[in-house]
Design a protein around this nucleic acid. Structure first.
Lengths: 348, 348
DNA sequence: AGTTTGTGAGAAAACGTTTTCTCATTTGAC
DNA sequence: GTCAAATGAGAAAACGTTTTCTCACAAACT
């Protein structure tokens, strides 16, 4: 019934239903006054011919396009993807579609994309990136539509969302403690990352001020190197490692195995990011902190929608709790739940 | 100058420039007849007040929205991302924006997204997925706009793009031969994948009919297991492995190292997918076949645009050549180029 | 019977463009 | 000096909706 050449307009609908255009419109939108019989007839005909209103025409009049833009400089990254999924999921059933604009780190390209979106009358823009403490290469403070920031720096007057890294670190350490670990060490990325400072701060607060933190880079290699350094040093060895991301964790596990140290029996490991493709494939599968970026995307989506509808939203940074995805790298789990969902993964 | 409350319309522009609306429009579009002085004046004023035409109004009239939809069921995957980047790159400077719709494998969700896009009068739809021989969970043959398929099955009458997997495999084997390898073995994924059959076929044709192929799964674990099996068997051992993806390659390299076999000295390795985050971080960095998905996306973008402009495009499958990204897992390289671009990577 | 109130439905304006048509004036040719 | 052609520019229609206004008619009051 659909796709029969040029789309049907409300004019066609009105003609078939034997009413005027205005009556047709009012019938469909449940506005205006008319006999119930007429209203139902119009609706029935609309259903029969598969009428769908032209959103361009609606947007022209209503000044709402039911379209938003998602700007990111993290084209290939694994952060933007879950955020996008969340945004899309939150908005699709409200009829909002999402323009995705990958702008790399090119300000000119960013401007082109922003202009194109504004021309298309987007109702708002969500800016997202790969790092919480860096901003996109383009200034959005003057765009004439609402903007919210997710997983990227937005400036003081903005509405921003990010995960609560301190909370994530606390979750990890507490889980290790629950499992009886005493000497926990934190191996993480470069200290100039805000997330790194956030997490290491919470780590020290929870694991004890004396607990050591090793800053390095976000690579597997660094995970291996860190283990070499720690085990080469004199003194008592850790019985648990909290790693700044899953790649570091993976390097660490490999290095431990090479030394004949068993995971999780001798050393328990917790990672960060819960990057499924690494965490779930590791042997043993890695317990990891999940930043719940999809939820972050959902919230950003709902917020931009609220702003687009004219509601006011308090500026400031909103942090979202992390959650721990328990797999086998810390043992079977404290409360005996681990494994109850099969031997691979357990959520929540 | 921009963002000063409600946007300027062509009516404002006309008033400021002291001409009628029609003259203003014609001036900007270089159409119609008028004095050169008038035309320039209008253009200058437009520039000064930062006038940008409302794309919704333009689209309403022209029946072209300069908007396309990208439908994918590979939300988190690494295939869709490069494709998207290519599409976006090819279209952005022609003023086309891209709706990204992640539909997982849910037909209902797919329908919602497609309907939303059609309502918004997209000029075309690109369907993309995670597997060349599977189609999206929604039938697009009846949508009233052009459709092209990229990295997903499109049906006989469709315009489809995919990489030339046979070519990729040939490249890999020839490179290994060039480097003096004689006994090449292919370790790859499940045989029910079209890509797997394509690649293994070309492998056999190039490496010799007697060359062995091991089918398994797309995991690191399978890479390790395959090496165990091959080295446990009696007879001469391979001096090169061509792996079906980078994860398999990684598992294989790990297993070889554990057996004290050196890469690339004793055994050379080539992977597939050139998934940077794996291939470049491996020790040694992995030589891998790149399917050039970004280029695939570019072509799909240009094609959908051509179709949207009314050109006819021959239906059928178009395959794009792969290219080999040479790193160190096969030795320094046959023609001495490898390393000339630094010790990490060499393209083309 | 005359006035108000209510009801069903259509006409027309509006949104911001582009395009076609019309028209007055100038230019050029004879 | 007349007529045809060319030129510059505006009026109006169109795109597909929504919304406000108007109006005819019927029902309910005096």
């Amino acid at each position: 019934m659909r796709g029969k050449g040029g789309r049907q307009t409300i004019r066609d609908l009105a003609a078939i239903a034997g009413v005027s255009i205005s009556t047709a419109s009012k019938a469909l939108n449940d506005t205006g006054r008319m006999g119930e019989e007429t209203r139902q007839r119009v609706k029935r005909v609309a259903r029969e011919i598969g009428f769908r209103p032209n959103a361009l025409a609606q947007g022209l009049l209503s000044k709402r396009s039911f379209t938003i833009g998602l700007l990111t400089n993290d084209t290939y990254g694994r952060f933007t993807l879950p955020v996008m999924a969340g945004v899309s999921e939150a908005l699709v059933d409200r009829g909002v579609s999402v323009f995705l604009c990958a702008i790399e780190d090119d300000p000119a390209l960013g401007q082109v994309h922003v202009d194109a979106m504004l021309d298309k009358q987007v109702d708002g823009i969500i800016a997202t990136g790969k790092r919480v403490d860096r901003s996109l290469p383009i200034d959005l403070t003057d765009v004439p539509v609402p903007v919210v920031y997710a997983f990227t720096e937005g400036g003081p007057e903005s509405v921003s969302f990010r995960s609560d890294d301190a909370h994530g670190a606390t979750l990890a350490v507490e889980w290790l403690k629950t499992n009886g670990r005493q000497r926990i060490v934190h191996v993480t990325g470069p200290e100039d990352f805000f997330s790194v400072r956030e997490r290491s701060g919470a780590f020290r607060a929870t694991a004890g001020e004396g607990a050591s933190v090793f800053f390095g880079e976000w690579s597997e290699t660094w995970g291996r190197d860190a283990v070499e350094r720690i085990w080469a040093a004199a003194g008592e060895k850790p019985d648990a490692l909290f790693c700044g991301n899953d790649q570091i964790a993976r390097g660490a596990v490999d290095a431990l195995r090479e030394r004949g140290i068993r995971v999780p029996e001798d050393v328990a490991i917790v990672g960060f990011d819960n990057w499924e493709i690494v965490a779930a494939q590791m042997r043993p599968p890695l317990t990891s902190v999940d930043m719940d970026l999809k939820e972050l995307g959902r919230q950003a989506g709902l917020t931009i929608l609220a702003l687009a509808e004219g509601l006011t939203v308090e500026p400031g940074v909103r942090t979202l709790p992390c959650r721990l995805v328990v797999r086998q790298s810390c043992g079977a789990g404290g409360s005996g739940e681990a494994g109850s969902l099969g031997n691979d993964e357990q959520r929540r």
